[in-house]
Design a binder for these strands. Structure first.
Length: 615
DNA sequence: TTAGGGTTAG
C-alpha cells in the first residue's frame, strides 16, 4: 500500500497528497478516486468522513452511493455522516434510499442513524418512512434517548398527526423543555390555541423559546393583547428577550396599535444591538406603519444596512396604507434600480397603493407587468386588488367582467370588493349579484349583509332592508359592533356608539358640544344619510353625534396636552360624517388626528385627510 | 441529532 502511494506521489507529487486528503468538492473527490484506481491503491486511503460529507454534496447520488457501498470495512459512523449530509441536502429522499441498503452491509443502525433518517423523513413529511423509523427506535430500545423522542414528536406534529404526537408525548418516561415546546408549537400551528396555552401554563420550566413561541402563537391566533400580557409577565420573571421575542412582541404591538410598548421594545432592541437584524427591522417598519407613524417607519427603513424584498414590500405596503401612492411607486422604482427582485407580496402592496388613490392605469400596468416582466403568476389576492381598484373607481361593469374572466375561482373577498364599489357608486343590481355569490361563499360574514342593507337604505328601499335583516337573523349572523379605542397614559379606553359608560362621559359630551358650535360656524352640516335607520332627522343627528370615533376623539382632546398627536383605532371603517367632522376639528384644535380603521389610515391635518377623501 | 421570527387584497 505504501509503495503504491509513493508511486502515485512520485507521478503526481504536487496534487496527490492534497487530492487524497483535502478534497472539498465532488469533482476533487472524483479526481482522488480516479487517482487511486490509476495507481491501483485501496479505497481506504481516502478519509472516510470526508468521503461521506463530500459524497452528499454531489448531485450525483449514484456515484456517492457506489463509493460508499464499495468502501472497505463498512462503518456505521461513515454511513451516518453520509445520511446526515443527505438528510440536510436538497434531496433528503436519498438518505432514506441509503438507509434501506444498510442491512445488505450487516450494519446495525444506532441512535444517530435513526436521528438522521428521521430528519430526512421530517424534511419530506414522509409519514410512512417516519413510522418505520419510529418502530425501529422502539425496537432497538433507543426510547431512553430524549432527543430522538423529541424528534419523533416534531415529526408527527409536522405531518399534522397531533393524535399520534399526543400518544408519544403522554408515553414519554421523561420530558424536557424541548418536548413541551415542540408540542406547543404544533398545537398552535394546528389552530388549537387553548390546548397550547393549557400546556404552556402547566410547563414545569420555561425557557425564552417557550415564551417567544407562546407570544408569537398569540399573534398568529388573533390574540395580540394576550401576547403583550405574556411579554410583560416574561419580563417580570426576569427572562431576557432575544431577537425572536422582539419580533413576536412587535408583531403584537402592530396588531394592537400599541405604539408606547412598540417604542419601548424598539429602544430595548437598540440597547441589545438587535438593530442590524433584518427581521427585527422589518417588523419595526410594520409596527410603526400600523401604529400610524409613517415617518418613523421610513427612518427605520432608511437606516437599514441590508434590506430584503420583505423590507421593501413592507415599506411599499406601509405607504399604500397611508395613502402615499406616489411614494410607494417611487420606492418600488428604487428597489428595482438596486437589483432587488420583487415577489407577489410586493405587487399586492403596489396594487393596494394604486387602488387607494384611484391610479387605474398604473394598477393595470403593474398587474400585466408582474407576469410579463417578473414571471410572477397573479394569485387570488392580486385579483382581489384589481377588482377593488376597478370598483372603487366606478368601473363596476369592467370589474364584473374581470371577475367572470378570472382563471381562478373568485372567493368572498373578490365579490366583497365589487360589493364595496357598488356601495360607493350606488349600484343596486350588481350589489345583489355580488351578494348572491357571497351567500354561497361566505354566508356567515356579517359585513356583506350590512353593506347590502346600507345600499338598500340609501335607496330608501326599507322593505329590502328589513328583508336582509330577517335573512341575517334566520342565518344566525350578528352585526359586529363598531368600537373605537384610544390609549392615554398607557391605558386603552374603548368606546361604542352612544357610550355613556365612561367615567368622564359628561366632559366628553361637553367637549363635543363645544366642537359642534365651532364646526357649525365653519359650515358643518351633519350628514345624516350615513344613519341607515328609518328614523326622523333629529334622532339621526343625535345618533350621529355619539359615534364611537367621535367619543374617542373628544376623550383624547380632554385628556392630552395641546399639540400632541391623537391616535384612534377603529375596528370597522370610518363613517363619512366622522371623516368630514375630523377634517374640520383638526383645524379647530390645531392637532394632527390619526385614525386607523379596518384597513387603512386617515391622517387628519390642517383640514385635510391623507386619504384625499378616496377610500 | 430536537423546539421559536418579518411584508399579503376587503
Amino acid at each position: 500500500m505504501q509503495v503504491c502511494l509513493s508511486t502515485s506521489m512520485n507521478s503526481f507529487p504536487k496534487h496527490a497528497h492534497s487530492l487524497l486528503s483535502n478534497f472539498n468538492s465532488p469533482l476533487e473527490l472524483k479526481q482522488a478516486h480516479a487517482l487511486l484506481i490509476k495507481t491501483n491503491s485501496p479505497l481506504s486511503l481516502l478519509p472516510a468522513y470526508r468521503v461521506a460529507s463530500v459524497c452528499a454534496l454531489s448531485p450525483d447520488f449514484s456515484y456517492a452511493h457506489k463509493l460508499l457501498t464499495q468502501f472497505p470495512e463498512p462503518q456505521i459512523d461513515v454511513w451516518n455522516s453520509c445520511l446526515k449530509a443527505f438528510a440536510e441536502s436538497d434531496s433528503p429522499s436519498d438518505a432514506i434510499l441509503l438507509f434501506s441498503r444498510l442491512r445488505e452491509f450487516d450494519l446495525l443502525p444506532n441512535g444517530f442513524t435513526c436521528a438522521f433518517v428521521l430528519k430526512a423523513c421530517t424534511a419530506l413529511l414522509d409519514d410512512k418512512s417516519g413510522r418505520i423509523i419510529h418502530g425501529f427506535i422502539e425496537k432497538l430500545g433507543f426510547k431512553w434517548n430524549l432527543v430522538l423522542q423529541n424528534m419523533i414528536l416534531n415529526f408527527y406534529g409536522l405531518c399534522g398527526e397531533m393524535g399520534t404526537a399526543w400518544l408519544v408525548f403522554d408515553s414519554m418516561p421523561e420530558r424536557d423543555v424541548v418536548s413541551w415546546n415542540v408540542m406547543i408549537t404544533h398545537l398552535i400551528k394546528s389552530g388549537d390555541f387553548e390546548g397550547a396555552y393549557g400546556l404552556f401554563s402547566r410547563m414545569p420550566e420555561r425557557n425564552v423559546r417557550s415564551w417567544t413561541m407562546m407570544i408569537s402563537g398569540c399573534v398568529h391566533c388573533g390574540k395580540p393583547k394576550k401576547g403583550v400580557e405574556l411579554f410583560m409577565e416574561m419580563e417580570k420573571m426576569g427572562v431576557k428577550a432575544n431577537e425572536v421575542t422582539v419580533v413576536a412582541v412587535l408583531a403584537a404591538c402592530a396588531d394592537l396599535g400599541a405604539l408606547d410598548l412598540g417604542r419601548r421594545v424598539h429602544e430595548y432592541s437598540k440597547r441589545c444591538g438587535f438593530g442590524r437584524n433584518v427581521r427585527v427591522s422589518n417588523t419595526l417598519i410594520d409596527m410603526y406603519v400600523k401604529c400610524g407613524c409613517l415617518e418613523e417607519a421610513r427612518k427605520v427603513f432608511d437606516e437599514m444596512e441590508e434590506r430584503t424584498v420583505v423590507s421593501w414590500s413592507a415599506m411599499i405596503q406601509g405607504l399604500a396604507m397611508h395613502g402615499q401612492a406616489p411614494d410607494a411607486l417611487r420606492v418600488f422604482s428604487m428597489m428595482i434600480e438596486m437589483g432587488v427582485e420583487p415577489n407577489g407580496v410586493t405587487f399586492i402592496g403596489l396594487l393596494h397603493a394604486c387602488s387607494h388613490m384611484g391610479l387605474i392605469d398604473e394598477g393595470r400596468r403593474f398587474f400585466s407587468g408582474m407576469t410579463r416582466d417578473y414571471g410572477i403568476i397573479p394569485e387570488i389576492e392580486h385579483y382581489g386588488c384589481m377588482v377593488d381598484l376597478l370598483s372603487r373607481a366606478g368601473l363596476l361593469q369592467e370589474a364584473h367582467e374581470f371577475i367572470m374572466n378570472m382563471p381562478i375561482r373568485p372567493n368572498g373577498v373578490v365579490w366583497g370588493a365589487l360589493l364595496g364599489g357598488c356601495k360607493v357608486h350606488k349600484h343596486v343590481e350588481l350589489a345583489e349579484e355580488a351578494t348572491r355569490h357571497l351567500a354561497q361563499l361566505d354566508p356567515l360574514n356579517d359585513g356583506y349583509y350590512v353593506v347590502l342593507s346600507n345600499i338598500y337604505a340609501e335607496a330608501e328601499r326599507w322593505e329590502d332592508v328589513a328583508r336582509v335583516r330577517k335573512l341575517m337573523k334566520n342565518r344566525g349572523v350578528k352585526k359586529t359592533p363598531g368600537y373605537s379605542s384610544i390609549m392615554v397614559d398607557g391605558v386603552i379606553h374603548e368606546f361604542v356608539a352612544g357610550d355613556d359608560a365612561h367615567s368622564q362621559a359628561n366632559e366628553i359630551f361637553g367637549m363635543w358640544d363645544q366642537l359642534l358650535a365651532h364646526m357649525k360656524l365653519r359650515g358643518y352640516v351633519p350628514n345624516t344619510s350615513v344613519v341607515l335607520l328609518d328614523m326622523d332627522e333629529k334622532e339621526k343627528e343625535k345618533f350621529l353625534y355619539r359615534h364611537s370615533e367621535k367619543l374617542a376623539l373628544c376623550f383624547g382632546l380632554i385628556s392630552t396636552q395641546p399639540g400632541v398627536v391623537i391616535r384612534i383605532m377603529k375596528n370597522l371603517r370610518v363613517c363619512e360624517d366622522c371623516h368630514a367632522a375630523f377634517k374640520l376639528i383638526s383645524t379647530i384644535v390645531n392637532r394632527e388626528i390619526v385614525v386607523r380603521d379596518r384597513n387603512r389610515f386617515h391622517c387628519f391635518k390642517d383640514g385635510a385627510c391623507s386619504c384625499q377623501d378616496y377610500w
